[in-house]
Amino acid sequence: MKFDFNVIVVQLPWLLKGAELTLSVSLLGIFFGTLVGVALALAQQSAISPLLYFVRVYISFIRGTPLFIQILIVFFILPSIGIDISRFTSGVVALSLNSGAYISEMIRGGLTSIRRGQIEAGRALGMPRPLIWRRIILPQVFTVILPPLTVEFASLLKYSALLSVIGVVELTRTAQQIIAATFKPIEIWLTVGVLYFIMCFALGVLTRRIERATTIYRLS
């Protein structure tokens, strides 16, 4: 058994291009996922019961089914209702819809973590409701959800590998193409593993930094 280092060196630029796509699809996923999450969280604050029911069913579906299947459903369902978009976009949609459900739970948790007294202090000072939302509630919700949001981003980086099955040429798909040409699966997959590890580990370090930085804003 010989380990071929040379093929890694030769293919690395391609792999890095794939990694770049992994990063961009994940970034778009977390961005749109946050929008979806905010929308879902707002919907849950409303009193319209069909809307509340829909949101609860939606979140239950996302949390109870594999992302693998969700990606395939999004990929096949969009053309059948006449929406013609690229594989990349379809992948971003699937990732956003998935993340959105989890992020909405984070936002709801963040909202409940703000103690009533803080809002009452604002009211007692004569602050109108929109001002209380803008200056007291939202900034604190943001600092509370920043660490779990970075964790979700790391999760997206890993799950973006599943987009290879719909042909998005991110890191995993690039690796499959290289292996088909070079027949060196172990060398390539191990390198790919290292690349994912570096990205996710770096994000983990960032998460811990953010956690430490935001503890000062949290009252006991």
Partner: peptide, 14 residues
């Protein structure tokens, strides 16, 4: 024009 002081202070942490 009314000031209120609470038992749990209620300062804004951020």
């Amino acid at each position: 024009s009314i000031g209120m002081v609470f038992q749990s202070f209620n300062l804004w942490g951020h």
